[in-house]
Write a protein that binds this DNA or RNA. Structure first.
Length: 269
DNA sequence: GGGATTGTTTAAAC
DNA sequence: CGTTTAAACAATCC
């Protein structure tokens, strides 16, 4: 499922698009835009130049000058640039024809994905939390903000209003590497544990970006390419297998309604 | 056929 | 108020 490294990979794969212009927008899914009626979309989108494409958290932001298209892949979204439409159009939920007759295509098996259209990007920025690669995200910031909350650490890290970009897979990995039990209350973490958490958030996200993300089920980018981080996973998806640190068996429990993988022997409660 | 899968929003419960 | 839980969305896989 696309989290920060996967979204970063997708954004990197779209960098030939900026400076192109949108000729037309096509959709077969009436809920494709979360905050606008499709009927009103054409005049906001057509003939608009795409100035830049960038990321915040899991959001893919298209700056078309007087509007911002903010795509969310959610669980199975697949956004790519191609010279032609796919032969199987079943999961194509919308596409844009650009001025050089190339296509920006959005496919989504589950139809959870889509986009917001904002006049002011602060509508997004005010709603979501800090991105781990922003300058302001420091050990000190994390320490202060973790300690003033009293929530289960996994639930807190899943909260996009707290930190944006982390999801189920990388949180399990980050907590395994940091030796922290996912149910620990945030206010009880030691400074040493928060330091580990901070370092591992940065380290694991960077490493996964280098691997072009994790393809566990559906993740694809740039015309059917897949990510390679799956082979590096230590916790997620490894229930019943040996913890590669202490040789105990990796367990699977439910935390914040999510399947959660951990080693009960070396992640202290 | 039932349950699990997960990102996000919203509502309800505690 | 802060936090947790659950439902809803939708499709597929086992």
């Amino acid at each position: 499922m696309p989290e920060l490294p996967e979204v970063e990979t997708v954004v990197n794969s779209l960098q030939k698009i900026p400076k192109k212009t949108i000729k037309s927008f096509h959709t077969s899914w009436h809920k494709i835009c979360y905050n606008n009626k499709i009927l009103n979309l054409d005049k906001s989108i057509n003939n608009k130049k795409i100035y830049s494409i960038y990321r915040k958290g899991k959001n893919i932001i298209f700056d078309i000058n007087d509007n911002y298209l903010v795509f969310q892949l959610r669980m199975t979204g697949y956004l790519y640039h191609s010279t032609q439409l796919p032969s199987n159009m079943k999961y194509v939920r919308c596409y844009f024809i650009l001025n050089d007759d190339s296509y920006l295509i959005f496919e989504d098996i589950r139809k959870f994905g889509g986009f917001y259209i904002y006049k002011d990007i602060n509508h997004l920025n005010n709603r979501i939390g800090i991105d781990p690669f922003e300058k302001q995200f420091t050990y000190k910031w994390l320490q202060e903000n973790i300690l003033k909350r009293n929530r289960q650490i996994k639930g807190l890290l899943l909260d996009q209003n707290f930190i944006c970009g982390l999801g189920n897979i990388y949180i399990d990995e980050i907590l395994w590497f940091s030796r922290i039990h996912p149910l620990r209350l945030s206010s009880t973490l030691s400074n040493k544990e928060i330091k580990q958490l901070f370092l591992n958030i940065i380290k694991i996200l960077k490493k996964s970006i280098d691997f072009h993300g994790t393809t566990f089920m559906n993740f694809k980018f740039d015309n059917m390419k897949t990510g390679n981080y799956k082979s590096e996973l230590e916790a997620y998806g490894r229930e019943g297998k040996k913890c590669q640190r202490c040789l105990n068996i990796i367990s699977k429990i439910k935390v914040s309604g999510r399947g959660t993988h951990l080693c009960k022997a070396c992640q202290s409660f």
